[in-house]
Computed example of a mutant assay.
Amino acid sequence: MTTWRDVQAAAPEFARRVQSLFDAHKHKTIATLRADGSPRISGIETAFTDGELTFGSMPNARKGSDLHRDPRFALHTATVDPVEGNEAEWPGEAKIAGRAVHSGSIPDGPDGDLFRADITEVVLTHLDDSATLLVIEWWTPTNGLRAVERE
């Protein structure tokens, strides 16, 4: 299992930037798979605690049922548009994909299921310093950190 702690150890600056984007807004988006294999998008809250990325699902929620049946997921930070004229200050957006590992009930707060992330990929998309190129950085447990720039 690959935890958030593993990402932090392998690529600390990259992990810091990704986590700051996830922590910047309370609400994120999660993609799960329905029983027929089609995608489902749901709102979600996440937490980085003790080197783990965790998230929950309320009782009888469709996303929780999806994750129990097929644990694959993709998380996306809140989307913020670049400010015209200040594009270089755009923080970008981040995504984390993996498998949800059921970890029991949510210990604090509403009833529901708690999941930990077994991370398979982390992606950070942003602009270069001159705001002329799109920079896509991604990390996987197998290949580590890589990057590509696009016009």
Rank of each mutant, 00 (worst) to 15 (best):
T3Y: 06
W4E: 08
W4N: 09
W4R: 07
D6P: 00
A9P: 00
A9R: 10
F14I: 06
A15D: 07
R16Y: 01
L21H: 04
L21Q: 04
F22W: 00
F22C: 00
F22A: 00
A24T: 02
A24D: 07
A24S: 10
K26C: 06
K26T: 11
K26R: 12
K28T: 06
K28G: 01
K28R: 05
T29W: 09
T32C: 13
L33K: 08
R34N: 10
A35L: 11
A35R: 12
D36N: 13
G37D: 15
G37R: 15
G37Y: 15
G37H: 14
P39K: 13
P39Q: 14
P39A: 15
R40P: 02
I44V: 11
I44S: 05
I44D: 02
E45T: 11
T46H: 01
F48G: 03
T49N: 07
D50H: 12
G56D: 02
S57H: 04
M58Q: 03
P59E: 06
N60M: 02
R62A: 13
K63Q: 03
D66E: 00
R69N: 08
D70P: 03
D70K: 05
P71H: 08
R72I: 03
R72L: 05
R72A: 08
F73H: 06
L75N: 14
H76E: 13
T79G: 03
V80Q: 06
V80G: 03
D81C: 02
D81Y: 02
P82G: 03
E84T: 12
G85M: 13
N86W: 06
N86S: 08
A88C: 03
A88E: 09
A88G: 00
E89Q: 12
E89S: 05
W90D: 11
P91H: 03
P91N: 04
E93I: 09
E93P: 01
I96L: 13
V101K: 15
H102N: 02
H102M: 01
S103P: 00
S103K: 05
G104W: 10
S105T: 01
S105N: 03
P107F: 09
P107A: 07
D108M: 12
G109F: 11
P110I: 04
D111Q: 11
D111T: 04
D113V: 04
F115M: 14
E121R: 10
V123E: 14
L124P: 10
H126V: 12
H126D: 15
L127E: 14
D129I: 10
S130K: 15
A131V: 08
T132E: 12
T140H: 10
P141K: 05
P141Y: 05
T142Q: 10
N143E: 13
G144S: 04
L145I: 02
A147N: 14
V148P: 01
E149W: 01
R150V: 00
R150S: 02
E151R: 09
